[in-house]
Amino acid sequence: MTNFFIGMFLSTLITAMLTTRLYRLIAWYAVNSLFLALAAMSEAVRIQDEAMLISALLTLVLKSALIPYLLKHFAVKFQAERNITPSIKVQYLIILIPAILVFTFYLIDPIIAGAAKNYISLAIASLFLSLVLMIEHRNVFAKVIGFLSLENALFLLAMTATEGMPMLIELGIFVDLLMAVVILNLLFKKEASHV
């Protein structure tokens, strides 16, 4: 079951990369986080780790509901440009995305085989994909979505490769994430939403 959710996670991320409208991008991010949370839950059930269950629930609440909502709210409030065309052409992305996936599998090849080997490569791939998501948009909101996807990739890695980080650290990461959103608010408050 985890495999399925992770697959969905990746595909929603890739779809998000090709999106050209801001609100839809935010929506895709919410879906993306949702699948991440589901994957985490199924994994938590599999290894019976309560801590991971909690963080999965937190993900569900925070990343797939609260943060997308806040972002949407900000976008409306600050009248962000809603048409976001990626600066990288689709033709290139068609080459780039598979190349990244192939590269990460190649990169991970020397690792001593374990259950998580493939997940690690997928996590690294989603890291790179999120980076591309950040690169391809000049819009600040889209960049923030990219950053949040990056966070998701981290969570994916933590969840699959290490069977969950120590709880304290996970909580710390969430706190920082919230802090980041607060800062974002402050930054948006002033002026232009373009970088």
């Binding site: 690690i120 966070e151 981290l154 890695l157 933590a158 490769a161």
Partner: peptide, 13 residues
């Protein structure tokens, strides 16, 4: 910072 965390998780893994 995200890269650092990514690395930390890999090391931990």
């Amino acid at each position: 910072i995200a890269l650092i965390l990514f690395g930390i998780i890999l090391i931990y893994a």
